[in-house]
């Protein structure tokens, strides 16, 4: 038996099936733009997280009145802002903060949305009805206004608490999507079969149904990531995001509200604006390729 076991185990690699993840990957490789975007994203992420490890945030955000609004030079690669702070350093740390918030919000809202949606869809009936009305309630709340109120209420916040506030109002979209898919999946015979085989509802939800909607989850979360990065930048730009001593791409961009800065000191806001654009485009490219991969008719790979 042991020998047979070994024999069988060695065949695992050969009989690998085109699973969902593999299809996603193949589509990414086929779509050169998406592949390029993914590499760009990975490099940027590795770069900002690596460099910010060395950089000292307090030093960068310290006001230096002798070096106000300096254009790019050898000392300051991207010049300084109106407080004499190094723009390049702020850009690195800001990108890191923006990305962190984007990732955290996507992750948290993803977890809440998936659990909420899959439970609601699986049980259906009254439970679904009640849960969906709760969701509708969150949906009609004016998101931007409430985040602004929360930010003004909470005395001190950092990237983590800010992510939590944003999460509170951004889990509904994914929850609704997952619910509709779970409603379909639970009607399939394999879910019913699991029930007759004695599996509990919880184990059917998470072990049987969830693996069948992973590709949908990956796609939605990727596309959400782009939206969340944009949202964070927007809020910071309006002055309701992170405080000035915690730079983000949005705070850098908000310097451009000063006409002087906008017209004569491009080095302060231009790099941040470009980076936001590139990051969102890159994430979107990847997300779109993944979305295409889930639909066999649109696939290229």
């Amino acid at each position: 038996m042991e020998a047979k076991d070994m024999n069988v185990d060695s065949q695992v690699l050969k009989s690998e099936s085109p699973s969902g993840l593999r299809i996603l990957w193949r589509e990414l490789v086929k779509d050169k733009l998406a592949l390029f975007s993914l590499i760009f994203l990975i490099l940027i992420t590795a770069f900002v997280f690596g460099i910010s490890w060395i950089l000292n945030q307090d030093e960068i955000v310290r006001v230096d009145l002798f070096a106000i609004n300096e254009p790019p030079s050898d000392e300051f690669i991207l010049g300084t802002d109106y407080g004499g702070r190094d723009v390049f350093g702020q850009l690195i740390i800001g990108t890191r903060n923006s990305l962190t918030i984007g990732f955290l919000v996507t992750l948290f809202s993803g977890i809440i949305g998936i659990v909420f949606g899959v439970v609601s869809g699986y049980f259906g009936g009254h439970i679904d009805n009640i849960m969906m009305r709760i969701l509708d309630f969150f949906f009609i709340l004016p998101f931007i206004m409430l985040v602004i109120v929360f930010v003004s209420l909470v005395p001190s916040y950092n990237t983590f608490t800010f992510s939590l506030i944003m999460t509170l109002f951004s889990w509904m979209g994914i929850a609704r999507l997952i619910r509709s898919k779970a409603l379909q999946e639970k009607e399939l015979d394999y879910a019913k079969a699991s029930k007759t085989l004695g599996s509990s509802d919880i184990s059917i939800i998470f072990k049987q149904v969830l693996p069948n909607i992973t590709s949908l989850i990956i796609v939605t979360m990727t596309l959400n990531l782009a939206a969340n990065i944009g949202l964070e930048s927007g809020l910071s730009f309006l002055g309701f995001g992170l405080p000035e001593n915690t730079p983000s791409l949005g705070t850098l961009l908000s310097y451009a509200t000063n006409p002087q800065t906008l017209e004569h000191r491009w080095w302060i806001w231009m790099p941040a604006a470009l980076l936001i654009l590139l990051l969102m485009l890159a994430v979107r490219n990847v997300g779109e390729a993944l979305r295409r991969a889930t639909d066999a008719r649109q696939r290229r790979g």
Binding site: L188, D189, P211, N212
Partner: peptide, 14 residues
């Protein structure tokens, strides 16, 4: 125990 009608949907594809 039960044997289902549709052998395609009664086995979890994943």
């Amino acid at each position: 125990q039960m044997i289902f009608q549709d052998p395609y949907s009664s086995l979890n594809p994943r």
